[in-house]
Design a protein around this nucleic acid. Sequence first.
DNA 1: TTGACGTATTCCCGTATGGGAATACGATCG
DNA 2: CGATCGTATTCCCATACGGGAATACGTCAA
Lengths: 111, 111
Amino acid sequence: MARAATTSDVFNAIAEPQRRDILALLRAGERPVTDLAQELGMSQPGASKHLRVLREVGLVRVREAGKQRLYGLDAGGLRPVHEWVGGFERFWNESFDRLDTYVQDLKRTEE
Amino acid sequence: MARAATTSDVFNAIAEPQRRDILALLRAGERPVTDLAQELGMSQPGASKHLRVLREVGLVRVREAGKQRLYGLDAGGLRPVHEWVGGFERFWNESFDRLDTYVQDLKRTEE
DNA sequence: TTGACGTATTCCCGTATGGGAATACGATCG
DNA sequence: CGATCGTATTCCCATACGGGAATACGTCAA
């Protein structure tokens, strides 16, 4: 056993910088694989692989368009992530207080 | 070359379910390693390792407390994630429209 | 100083990947 | 049908992890 099954999980899908780039690009609209690959400076197979992951977790949708396959954004899958992170929102607003406490503590320790 | 250096990146840090669990628990306040390990059903070394990753990306902060080391949440690091995902918010609100378009397209294809 | 307790490291293993190269597919056009 | 274009797969390599076991550390109590 090793590296618990992480794939097919949205959090893992967006952990890859290149995949985040793809998603960002798709906000502008549907695009064929080659287009994405070229624009992001990656190989076609590379783009296809990343798109596959994104498709499997439901962040992207494909549409057959003749010889091409147009990939489009399906942002709904990001909602759970947004909500999860949102659950911490009130904590980073307290950050200054906490940082202050931390600093006070350091001072006390140094004395 | 393989699997680009992903560690030391917030997105990657929260890609691990267990690490997300740790962060969630820490919202209730500081905790020593053993506590976390037990509560989450993981080994002490395991907890320490995950905490190390979280510390390196700045999501967690340590405070020496005698024999123990109290880990506390440092949610500020989640802000970039929240913002990134937030950049897609308006897209998942359009999801119904898009889904509709998609379905229309399927119908047309089947005819 | 010796022990005990709470943690962090180090090893080692097996699997999951990301990337590159070559190749297999599927659809459209002559 | 045969050629071509746009994509998806398959191999293979090297590395990054996550997990378990054993061990090294650092601190405090007796």
